[in-house]
Each structure stands twice: as C-alpha cells, then as structure tokens.
Computed example of a mutant assay.
Amino acid sequence: MSRVDLNLLTALDALLSERSVTAAAQRLNLSVSAMSRTLARLRAATGDRLLLQAGRSLVLTPYGEQLRQRLGPLTLEAQALLKPPEYRFDVAALEHSFAVRAGEGFIDLVGAALIERISRAAPGVQLRFMPKPDWDAQPLRDGTIDLEIGTVRTSAPEMRTRLLFRDRYVGACRVDHPLLSNSGVSVESWIEFGHILTARPGEESNPVDLALAKCGKERRVPMVVPSFTSAMQVARRSDLLAVIPRSCVGNPFVPDHAAVNGLQWFELPVSTPRFNVSAIWHPRLDHDQAHRWLRAEIVDVCVAAYPRDPIGPKSDTQSAR
C-alpha cells in the first residue's frame, strides 16, 4: 500500500463531482495550484486523464464517469471506517452472553443479587460463570472469558483492574465445635485441631502459615481442597477447622449464610493481611459499552454487598501490575 494515498479519494471525489479544479480546491480548502498537482497525481495513479478541457469547462472522460458513479459510496464508506462508531447504546435491547470467571463464594453470595439487577435492566443478557482453577491470564487474552472476579495474581502487565471490595480471613467451624467452648480462641487451642487448607495450583504460600511461622507455630493440615466452599462443607460435618474470607460468611443479601450452612465463624488468633477483590479484564474491552455497563453493575452490587469496605476510585483502568 506504499503507493496508495487514501486522501486522493476525497480529492478525486471533489474533482469529479465539481468538474472544476477551482471549485474542488474551494471545497477542500486547498489552493488551486495544490489541487492541480493533486489532479496530476490522480492521472498518474489511474492511467487516465479523468478531466479534459472543453471550451471554458471541463468534462469527464469515460473512465472518469465510471469512477464518479462508484466513488461517492466508496468515499463515504472509507470515512465511516476511519472514525469512531456512531450508535446509541441501548442496554434494554442488549442480547449478549458474558463469560465471567469467579470463585464459588462470589457466585453463592452475590450471584443472585447480581443477575436480578442485570435482568431488570437487560433481560437479554446472560451471565455464564466459568470455573476458576488458577490465575492464568490467557483466557482473558484470547477472549474465552470476558471478566474475572478475584485477587490480582496475574503476571500479565496489560490487564486492567477495578477494586470491588477489601476482604480478610476469618476462621470457621461447625456449630457447637469444642474450640468455641472457651471464652476466646488462642493460637494454642486453634492448632490443636486439624485444619482444611484451601489451595489452587500455583499457590506457593499461605498467609495463615506465614503468620504461624512468625510465632514459631505450625498447624496440622490433613486435607487440602480447591475452594473455600468445599472447605466450608467439610468443616460443617467434621471437627476440622477452615479459614475462609470474611465475605463468605454473609452480606446484606445473604446475612446468615454461615449459620444456614451449619457454621460459626470467629476471628483468627493470628494476624493476616487484608486483600483486594477486583474485577480483571483485557484492555481491548476498555471502551466496549456493553462491558463497561457490566463492570458498573458489578461494582454497584459489591458496594451494596460489602458497604463497610472502602471502594476504589471511579476510574477503572488501573493496570494489573
């Protein structure tokens, strides 16, 4: 395409429509001499004279006449391709399926409120939740998933994130567990019981074990499960103890989630850092209006679900690294 100058299309359209070098120059805000040079370039490019003198006016050659008939629609189409799309986003008419990767806890505790809100505004929208076995960014890159909900552990620097809420870890055990028979939970009483560890492939360290190591302590872990939901289900039916995010205990939408599942929760006897739960997506979807709308809906639902946790700034184009 090194020999092709698409600006010549506009000049050719003006010359063939006006049939005058002077009028075409005025139409494009060019000098007459500049338009004459452009006509020379067009003649060289097409191999045809295009416009010929006929007395005091110019007439089109047969090939120039053919081009005039084709050029109007072609020029308009080229201009439309090279400018931002002009359409009004109508969420009520949106027909789309969004693939969202999220943990089971988010789906259990926020999913119903989220889809109820979305269905009211856009009944043609479907949320297709996908399993979250790891933190691999490739599904976001190749479009297999549109959005991920969780902690940011990807090494892909181009990913965009938006803070949804801040979370922390708490302990969980079955109702009437002997651990809670005393007035408080100490490190010593806590590590007397077996623990359920929640870990995914690629997770090298656990904040609870790091905190215990600082105290010179170690817990016994007879079971490792892939999700916090699984840890909660095992804990409700055994004497094993679970460590889960505080968000899994309940929220205003599901206020007694732990109790309904036969669990009691308690503050951990060791200090672990809080962590961020974010929306994560690929930058190609930054300005997609449907995706922007979905992100805003998720933010609003999370603000309502976890009102005491400060939300990040309204701008949502922070890099993942």
Rank of each mutant, 00 (worst) to 15 (best):
L6R: 12
L8K: 06
L12Q: 12
D13N: 12
S17K: 15
R19M: 13
S20T: 06
T22Q: 13
A25T: 10
R27Y: 02
N29A: 15
A34K: 06
A34S: 12
M35I: 01
L39G: 13
A45H: 05
G47W: 08
D48M: 04
Q53A: 09
L58E: 03
V59T: 14
E65Y: 01
G72D: 06
G72A: 15
T75H: 02
T75D: 02
L76T: 08
L81Y: 04
K83D: 09
V91D: 04
E95Q: 13
H96W: 12
A99K: 12
R101L: 00
A102F: 04
L109R: 00
G111S: 03
A112K: 08
S119P: 00
A122T: 08
A122Y: 00
P123T: 03
L127G: 00
F129T: 02
M130P: 00
P133A: 12
A137T: 07
P139E: 01
I149G: 00
V152D: 11
V152C: 14
T154R: 09
T154C: 15
L163H: 10
L164E: 00
D167R: 01
R168E: 03
R168A: 07
A172E: 04
S181D: 11
G184T: 10
F193H: 15
T198M: 11
A199F: 01
R200N: 03
R200V: 04
R200P: 01
P201Y: 09
E203S: 08
E204N: 11
N206F: 10
V208F: 11
K214C: 03
K217G: 02
R219Y: 10
M223W: 06
V225L: 15
P226Y: 06
F228Q: 00
S230V: 07
Q233K: 11
V234N: 02
L240V: 08
L240K: 14
L241M: 04
A242W: 10
G250E: 03
N251I: 02
A259S: 13
Q264Y: 02
Q264D: 12
W265I: 05
L268E: 07
L268N: 07
P273E: 05
P273A: 10
R274M: 13
R274N: 09
I280D: 12
P283A: 13
H291L: 09
W293Q: 06
L294S: 10
L294V: 06
R295C: 15
I298C: 01
C302M: 15
A304L: 15
A304I: 04
A305R: 01
Y306W: 12
P310D: 11
P313V: 09
K314V: 14
T317F: 11
Q318S: 10
R321S: 15
